[in-house]
Nucleic acid binder design. Structure first.
Lengths: 277, 277
DNA sequence: TATTAAATGAAATAAATAGTTCATTTTTGT
DNA sequence: ACAAAAATGAACTATTTATTTCATTTAATA
């Protein structure tokens, strides 16, 4: 019997061997099967107390399943928790540690696989960390605004571009602030009281985006912000602020989660319009 | 100021005092705000490395916020994670059991979850169905081209936009064909023999994109195509053709997989340039 | 720019946590 | 019921992890 590589395997092994274990080891087994969170977080001493066995029994249990110590079992549970909820950064680090030169570092396919992995993770995080309330508020604001001005420069420009396209398809008066013809100021000055500004900006935050945010605040317009950190300079001006944890490969940040968020907003808005007309 | 009793309180305190903190303490602050899971799981040594500060700074940070040590902060995040995962597991179970009206069909969060889900799958598919050979050939062609012309209209415009941005950062002569000022024909006619055209087009295929493809073929330029079907009208002209299977929610197609592909190409190219110079 | 205070980081120390040992108890087979 | 073997638990040791210290650097003040 090989040593278990993840929780599911371990649980299977425990169940299949349960009847052959000694009394104390059964106690441990049943605790291990029922208390995932405790295993991930508590110390051996605490776990031993909870399971009502001496600490050494835990180590014996681990060794009975071919581990070098109980800590390896705890690691298993930790990693599982991380995979369920973790920020992609944690994930990526784990990947790098556990998956050395498989596809070949720097090779295109390897890069693609890393991005795919990291994006997939970021998607999950986005879905779990975004609240219904934020979303509904944002959609509501979008649906009530006279005009919607969208700004996102440099890296964020493509996201802004897409959102503008999508909102137009939801029959919104959406305008992309692109600075075309050097007309940033002219475009910025259009924002009025019943309008809404949606800014997308990641570190390093573009000057113009921050300026628009200020201008919008002054004009009394509502604001939705999509950014990458709680302490983003934009967060201060926002009515609704989405902090998106994008994945990255080496130093290259992905965009996928932001794109997903933006598209979800547009589609949710489309649904809403449909139901109210 | 009383000591924070939970994550939300702590985050508020950090944000409000951020500007008054020293440089290193700000580094820690920003890491603490953005890496919940790392804080729950990693040791001080690991966190210090990730935040790029010495361990002692973490303890100083904790003390600046009235904790007795950094471990108290870690406890805060652990407790929060336990609560969060418990409720997430519950929610996930409920979702599966009551599929229909639980999160609410058409509700923003439900839409976001669906998109996150299908995108995550699409990522996986992309990573497994794309071949090393295609990718390497594409990267090679990109690195050798005199000029790179990129076209993608309507829905694909944002992807084209992003690729242009990314290639410019990899020090490529990349040009976005955007039809600005009604100059499609003028832009198209620039394509020469040693140039490369990268077209992105999904059904329904934009006329201009197909035209460019033909023009490029006539001019003897190389072509990379990103599309959604083997029988796309573009596939015929391509030297390398990526068929991307995007996810969709109801009738709304996602874009994330294409974005991921495009970014991987750009990063792979950047790596290649770096290694050859 | 000289002086002092604040911030920083490397290395040492303290605390905690995990794992080992061995004497004792319990079980098993005859 | 009696070895012999297996299981058990208390106390000990080793290891890892958190915290403190202090010499050095950086920034502020006069």
């Amino acid at each position: 019997m090989p040593v278990a590589k993840n929780i599911v395997q371990l649980q299977q092994q425990i169940r299949s061997r349960y009847d052959d274990l000694s009394k104390r080891l059964q106690q441990v087994a049943s605790y291990v099967l029922d208390n995932n969170n405790s295993l991930a977080f508590d110390t051996i001493a605490v776990i031993a107390t909870q399971a009502d066995v001496p600490p050494s029994t835990l180590i014996r249990f681990a060794k009975a399943f071919e581990f070098s110590g109980f800590n390896e079992i705890k690691q298993l549970f930790r990693r599982d928790l991380i995979e369920e909820t973790a920020s992609y950064t944690d994930r990526a680090r784990l990947l790098k540690e556990h998956e050395p030169e498989q596809t070949g570092r720097g090779k295109p396919l390897h890069i693609l696989q890393q991005f795919a992995q990291v994006n997939s993770q970021a998607m999950h995080q986005l879905a779990t960390q975004t609240s219904q309330q934020q979303l509904e508020m944002a959609v509501d604001m979008l649906s009530k605004a006279d005009n919607i001005y969208i700004i996102g420069l440099r890296r964020s420009f493509s996201i802004a571009t897409y959102l503008t396209y999508a909102l137009r398809h939801a029959e919104c008066r959406a305008f992309l602030i692109d600075g075309l013809g050097g007309m940033f100021n002219e475009q910025l000055s259009m924002v009025g009281k019943n309008d809404l500004v949606l800014s997308i900006s990641f570190s390093p935050y573009a000057e113009e985006t921050v300026m628009l945010s200020k201008a919008a605040a002054k004009a009394g317009a509502q604001q939705i912000i999509i950014t990458d950190s709680q302490i983003s300079p934009l967060a201060a001006y926002s009515d609704v602020c989405f902090v998106v944890n994008e994945g990255k490969v080496d130093e290259f940040r992905s965009q996928s989660a932001s794109l997903c968020l933006v598209q979800s907003l547009a589609v949710a808005l489309a649904f809403k319009q449909e139901n109210t007309h």
